[in-house]
C-alpha cells in the first residue's frame, strides 16, 4: 500500500521555524512507523534525524507523537495508523533537531526521586529475602523503560517542566513499595513538594500512552495515598 508520512522538520542551522515535510512510500501493513522513518532517511532524505536504538520496544529512545498521540515508533504498526501518518516530536521539551528533543529536564526529574535501592543495614549472610507477594507489590512499575511517553503526554508537565511527572513517580513507586528498601520516607517527602505529586490531576493521558502498559495513574494514586495516610499499606 502507498503511505504518506508527514514529518515535523526543524534544522537549527537553517530553519527559523519548524516545518512539515511529506514523503510518499510503499509499505505493508506489518511495517512499523520506525521502518518508514528508516526508509525515508535511507532512500529519500538523509538529513532526517530521530533517535532509535533497540528497535524492539526496550531501550525507550524512539518515543514520538504519531497521529497526535505518544507512542514508540518501533511498536506502532502501519495497520494501526492507516495510510496517512503524521509524526511529531513529543511535547513539553526543547526540540534539538527534527524528532529529537532535549531529554535532560525529564532525566533531571527522574534522578531527583532517588530512583535506586537504598538499604544501609548490615548485609545478611545470604540475599535480602522477599516473599512473592512482597515482590508482586511493585512488579508493575519495574517495567518502565524511561521512554517519556507518559510525562510528555501529561498536561501538568506541559504547563510546567518542573513537575516531576509520571515517569519519575513510577520509578519512585518502584522503590517505595519494595520491602527491602529503606528510603521510602525520604522519597515521599520529595514527592510531597509543590512541583511534586499533587500536580497530578488524574487525567490518565500517561496511562493511555505508556507502551509498557503500566498502570501509571494507579501507581501515582498509591503514592498519593501513602503520602496522605503515612502508611505503605
Amino acid at each position: 500500500m502507498q503511505i504518506t508520512i508527514k514529518i515535523f522538520r526543524y534544522n537549527p542551522e537553517k530553519d527559523k521555524k519548524p516545518r512539515y515535510e511529506s514523503y510518499k512510500l510503499e509499505a505493508v501493513e506489518t511495517d512499523r512507523v520506525l521502518d518508514l522513518l528508516e526508509k525515508v532517511k535511507g532512500y529519500q532524505d538523509g538529513t532526517l534525524s530521530f533517535r532509535r536504538s533497540c528497535a524492539h520496544g526496550i531501550c525507550g529512545s524512539d518515543a514520538m507523537r504519531i497521529n497526535g498521540f505518544n507512542r514508540l515508533a518501533c511498536k506502532t504498526l502501519v495497520r494501526d495508523t492507516g495510510a496517512k501518518i503524521t509524526v511529531e516530536p513529543i511535547l513539553g521539551l526543547k526540540v534539538i533537531k527534527d524528532l529529537i528533543v532535549d531529554m535532560e529536564p525529564f532525566f533531571e526529574n527522574f534522578r531527583s526521586v532517588i530512583p535506586y535501592f537504598v538499604n544501609d543495614e548490615p548485609e545478611p549472610a545470604q540475599e535480602r529475602l522477599q516473599s512473592p507477594e512482597q515482590r508482586e507489590r511493585f512488579d508493575d512499575t519495574t517495567k518502565c523503560i524511561l521512554c517519556a511517553c507518559c510525562t510528555t503526554s501529561c498536561p501538568s508537565f506541559w504547563a510546567n517542566e518542573q513537575y516531576l511527572g509520571p515517569a519519575a513517580i513510577v520509578n519512585a513507586h518502584r522503590f517505595i513499595f519494595d520491602s527491602r528498601d529503606r528510603a521510602a520516607a525520604e522519597r515521599l517527602k520529595i514527592l510531597n513538594d509543590i512541583f511534586g505529586i499533587h500536580r497530578c490531576h488524574t487525567i490518565f493521558n500517561c496511562t493511555l500512552a505508556c507502551p509498557r502498559e503500566i498502570q501509571v495513574t494507579k501507581a501515582i494514586g498509591e503514592v498519593k495515598k501513602a503520602i496522605v495516610t503515612g502508611s505503605l499499606e
Binding site: K94, D102, I203, F204, N205
Partner: peptide, 20 residues
C-alpha cells in the same frame, strides 16, 4: 534548538481521548 514545544493549541491537539 527550539523553545519548549508546547502551548494551549499544541496541547489541545493531543489525542488524549475520553479521559482528557
Amino acid at each position: 534548538g527550539l523553545k519548549r514545544n508546547v502551548g494551549l493549541i499544541e496541547g489541545l491537539r493531543y489525542q488524549g481521548k475520553g479521559p482528557m
